[in-house]
């Protein structure tokens, strides 16, 4: 059929992208069995670019991010294959002291749930200042000054007065800003934002997304934005990686994916968005349920729910086929899907 995409697609340049994940495999050994959470994820991001990782809960988005950051729970987690290259160096082969240095200064992360990610017993200013003291050996008073600057930068009103307040004294949106302040404290080259606005109101979401875009513009960071919100993705992504059952099932520049999805799952997601002109009609719904990682379906993991399924889908795992230099789809029948267009 088509040749298999061996190199990453997306923002990668000839010399390799800033951060590249290649064929990553992660599993969890649980009492109920081995959960294959990540089954060959390949994606990359370059300076100044935004890669959106789109997928439903349990599809392996956060586990991939935690593995990049080197904060995966091991055990029960186990990395069973793949590479994570930052500036060409495989992080998985680095000793812990070198990884610790990259964490925060090279790559940093904003978590979905700021309340549980921040330490409840320390003032927020102290927690931000700690980044400078730990990584840079900055003096107590300088670090504190920098913390106030950062709180200002992420627009915490009256930052100077609030530097000694505790996390629970801030609203959800402000806590998320504080998380962002900590994440950008050391000027990282790549920022991973894991569902940074999922728990927030749309008004606050708009503030936070605006802030992230501004910070990215100022410092030319590469941004990996993990989300399940098709609106947010359409708004900010340059490239998209769609995950399903621990794999990337489609990769594409943002306009291509929304105009013309190449995988039945991405197509189904786009079609299930409520549309004004279809009000009063049934919503399109992908039938069935997301896969159980303990008993992944054979062949293509999406086959029990797929309207394009043929016999070989049940037996043959589709590789990530190359569609063009920037696009790939893990569907045996991607041509048909593309030909059908999006609604």
């Amino acid at each position: 059929m088509t040749e298999v995409l061996s190199e990453h697609v997306g923002s990668g340049s000839a010399g390799g992208a800033l951060l590249e994940v290649e064929d990553l495999h992660v599993e969890f050994r649980t009492r109920a069995g081995v959960a294959k959470a990540v089954n060959g994820v390949t994606y990359s991001v370059d300076a100044g670019r935004t890669l959106a990782v789109l997928g439903e809960s349990g599809s392996g988005k956060s586990v991939t991010a935690q593995t990049i950051m080197g904060i995966l729970d091991m055990p029960p987690g186990r990395i069973t294959g793949g590479e994570i290259r930052f500036r060409g160096v495989d992080l998985l082969k680095l000793p812990e002291d070198q990884r610790r240095k990259i964490r925060g200064e090279g790559i940093s992360m904003v978590f979905q749930d700021a309340l549980s990610a921040l330490n409840p017993v320390f003032p927020v200013g102290w927690q931000i200042a700690e980044m400078f003291r730990m990584h840079r050996g900055t003096s107590r008073s300088d670090a504190r000054k920098k913390a106030v600057e950062l709180m200002d930068r992420v627009r915490i009103p009256a930052a100077k007065e609030r530097v000694n307040d505790f996390p629970h004294q801030f609203s959800g949106g402000m806590r998320q800003r504080i998380m962002i302040a900590m994440a950008i404290a050391l000027d990282p080259e790549v920022l991973i934002a894991d569902e940074p606005t999922t728990a927030l109101d749309v008004t606050v979401q708009a503030q936070i997304m605006g802030l992230l875009a501004e910070l990215q513009r100022d410092s030319n960071m590469g941004l990996i934005l993990i989300t399940h919100d098709l609106g947010v993705v359409a708004d900010v992504a340059d490239e998209i990686a769609v995950m399903y059952g621990g794999r990337i099932v489609e990769k594409a520049p943002v306009h291509d994916l929304y105009r013309n999805p190449a995988h039945p799952y991405s197509k189904g997601l786009l079609e299930s968005i409520p549309r004004v002109d279809l009000k009063g009609q049934e919503l399109y719904a992908i039938k069935g349920m997301p896969p159980n990682l303990l008993e992944m379906p054979t062949g293509c993991a999406f086959h029990p729910r797929c309207p394009y399924r043929r016999d070989n889908c049940v037996t043959d795992v589709p590789p990530l086929y190359t569609i063009s230099g920037t696009r790939g789809s893990a569907c045996h029948y991607w041509r048909e899907v593309i030909d059908d267009g999006s609604r």
């Binding site: 749309v202 008004t203 979401q205 708009a206 609106g231 947010v232 708004d235 306009h255 786009l270 968005i273």
Partner: peptide
């Protein structure tokens, strides 16, 4: 409120 809702279309 309405204007803060991201539109699921990049065009």
């Amino acid at each position: 409120l309405l204007s803060a809702v991201p539109v699921p279309n990049p065009e």
